[in-house]
């Protein structure tokens, strides 16, 4: 279903524009950018693969991520939002973790596939 929508979107520009609009409305309603979080900050840490991916982040990126999460926790406690000029903007919300996570998942998948393969003899 999702892949069909994506295929359609890449084919027709008007469709893609509409989807983009809906997506931004959704992100705005979800509200995490108003708390200073990026989309990849929402990925749950309680997972071996995510932990491995987090370890592979450069130190500065790791630090910034922890800072954003702590700031959001504080805001949540205080029932506050960030001032509007500090909200995460569209262009700031780049996927910094999900590509690495995809790579870690691909490695695990490859390992599982290679560890269960059965050799076929040539003769």
């Amino acid at each position: 279903m999702a892949s069909q929508v994506a295929k359609q979107a890449t084919r027709q520009p008007w469709y893609q524009a509409g989807l983009q609009k809906m997506a931004s409305i959704y992100v705005n309603l979800a509200g995490y950018r108003k708390m200073g979080l990026k989309t990849d900050d929402l990925i749950s840490e309680e997972d071996e693969q995510v932990l491995t991916a987090l370890k592979r982040l450069p130190p500065q990126v790791q630090y910034d991520r922890v800072y954003r999460i702590r700031r959001a926790t504080q805001l949540s406690l205080q029932h506050k939002l960030l001032p509007k000029n500090e909200w995460i903007k569209d262009e700031e919300d780049e996927p910094y973790l999900s590509p690495i996570l995809a790579q870690v998942k691909a490695e695990a998948k490859e390992r599982a596939a290679l560890d269960t393969l059965a050799p076929i003899k040539r003769h």
Binding site: E107, E110, R111, L114, L117, P119
Partner: peptide, 12 residues
């Protein structure tokens, strides 16, 4: 290819 694939292929 990955390091794991290199190892497994040469093992085979």
């Amino acid at each position: 290819r990955s390091a794991l694939r290199i190892t497994r292929e040469s093992e085979l």
